[in-house]
């Protein structure tokens, strides 16, 4: 087990927990960028220790997409939400945090480190997506999950070539674009961030 990979996945888990409890879209964007560094770290680890130099292109792509392009696109679409403060939730942040820690423990138990941390981070994003209902929080929750899953694929999918990883990265960009577009449409139609009262949510 590489210490480098352990550090990357630990950073991933920490940023995922922080994204769950954060209260403003702007802080969320900062945390997403730090989370991207964890993903780039996991890719760099595979490039160095797995002797796969082509993965450096994946590292570069992750950095460009997730440090600049995706936060830029989301910020542009959701500009009116820049200073929004979202403390609302069906349960308090403390309860969410406890729940996330419990699920994290479960994640680490079912998988050995460092993949256990990836599973733990995945559980935390599920808690975030179930426990928060502001449009921007859900949006960043899904993008956070996308990063977590990418790290999982990088960690476990040792034989996925760089072209596959690039494809996964580009799909992540498309996901961010569509999420931001639909979130902006929701904001335009509802004049609200709260998506609990969606008329279509009738099962």
């Amino acid at each position: 087990m590489s210490t480098w990979l352990l550090l990357a996945t630990a950073l991933l888990w920490l940023t995922t927990v922080a994204m769950m409890i954060v209260k403003t879209p702007r802080s969320m964007m900062v945390l997403y960028r730090i989370q991207a560094l964890a993903e780039a770290g996991a890719a760099a680890e595979a490039a160095i220790f797995g002797h796969r130099p082509m993965l450096w292109s994946v590292v570069a792509l992750i950095l460009v997409l997730k440090l600049f392009i995706i936060p830029g696109v989301v910020a542009r679409w959701l500009a009116p939400l820049d200073n929004v403060y979202g403390a609302a939730g069906p349960v308090g942040s403390t309860a969410l945090l406890m729940l996330a820690l419990a699920f994290s423990g479960g994640g680490i138990l079912i998988g050995h480190l460092p993949i256990g941390l990836v599973f733990a981070a995945m559980m935390v994003t599920f808690v975030q997506i179930s426990g928060r209902y502001e449009v921007w929080s859900l949006l960043w929750g899904i993008l956070s999950l996308e990063t977590v899953i990418d790290v999982g694929a990088l960690t476990l999918g040792g034989n996925i070539p760089a072209v596959g990883e690039v494809g996964i990265g580009v799909t992540g960009l498309a996901l961010a674009l569509v999420l931001a577009y639909v979130a902006a449409q929701v904001r335009r139609i509802k004049h609200s961030l709260d998506v609990r009262d969606l008329e279509e949510l009738i099962g």
């Binding site: 996308e146 999918g157 996964i168 996901l175 929701v186 008329e199 949510l201």
Partner: peptide
């Protein structure tokens, strides 16, 4: 771009993207 359509699209992307991402990790 009507209310019902946008709300349905939001629900569609949130639910199915959770599924899609889990499917990728599950496949790996």
């Amino acid at each position: 771009a009507e209310r019902g359509a946008v709300e349905a699209a939001w629900k569609y992307i949130v639910v199915t993207e959770l599924g899609g991402l889990v499917a990728l990790l599950g496949t790996v």
